[in-house]
């Protein structure tokens, strides 16, 4: 696991982050840290600000105020993005390109040593090697999702940002993703997962953060009572 020259011990540290849409604060003074090697479930209702926060962490958007440091560096720095893997709402692969072309494109963008070999490897790992040269627009939904998962993991990121990863996946894709996440956890990589599917998320998670109307409502370790009663957190820390 590459920890490199990280200054702080936290993989991700978020310090007083605000984000506005006009004068409306979508995120209000969010501060928390995520330790390296942990798996954080970022919970909250639709529109609570989970996606906004993930986008800031992934360097897709900027905080209006506050500091975000990832593996000791600024979120938008090129070297930081090199170490982040993002799986968002869209699958982020091109319809007009083949599975192999998609993966080797991203291999080139991440400046991997051998993009073509890496692409082939990941096609095998996600069970897409038989449709290697098929165009994505001919793929079934499940195949696209597996390709998206491969795109997210292909550069061996040390931090994974997943936005509603299990929503809309078919069984096989869920299986692939769960296996990859488990091995990522075993390798000590950090995972932040925004979701409102409590049960799946809490099984994997070591940590929990709950965002409510753009504010951090709860941050702590995942406990057994959460697993037994996933609604517990919302009842105690969600809005009244």
């Amino acid at each position: 696991m590459p920890t490199g020259s990280t200054v702080s011990s936290s993989a991700v540290s978020i310090d007083g982050v605000w984000k506005y849409y006009g004068d409306y604060p979508a995120l209000r003074d969010i501060s928390f840290n995520v330790d390296g090697g942990s798996c954080l479930a970022l919970l909250g209702r639709n529109g609570a600000g989970k996606t906004t926060l993930l986008r800031i962490l992934g360097g897709l958007s900027k905080a209006a105020r506050g500091r975000v440091s990832i593996l000791g560096k600024d979120a938008r720095a090129g070297s930081t993005r090199q170490r982040i893997g993002i799986l968002g709402h869209g699958i982020g692969v091109y319809e007009e390109l083949s599975a192999f072309e998609n993966l080797s494109l991203f291999g080139q963008l991440y400046d991997l040593a051998d993009p073509r070999r890496t692409a082939t490897e990941w096609l095998e790992r996600t069970g897409l090697d038989r449709v290697r040269d098929g165009l994505v627009r001919e793929f079934s939904r499940g195949m696209r999702q597996r390709l998206a998962i491969a795109r997210c993991f292909l550069h061996r990121p040390s931090l994974l940002l997943l936005d509603e990863p299990f929503t809309a996946l078919d069984d096989r894709a869920i299986q692939v993703l769960q296996d990859l996440l488990k091995s990522a956890i075993a390798e000590g990589r950090t995972i932040i997962m925004a979701t409102h599917q409590l049960r799946e998320a809490l099984e994997l998670a070591t940590d929990v953060a709950l965002i409510n109307r753009g504010k951090l409502a709860y941050r702590g370790a995942r406990t057994w009572e959460m697993l037994e009663d996933p609604g517990w957190l919302y009842r105690h820390y969600g809005e009244a």
Partner: peptide, 15 residues
């Protein structure tokens, strides 16, 4: 725009 590819590009280390 399709499949949010712009996000995937912006998230990559390409400036």
């Amino acid at each position: 725009l399709m499949n949010d590819c712009l996000d995937a590009l912006l998230a990559s280390p390409v400036s």
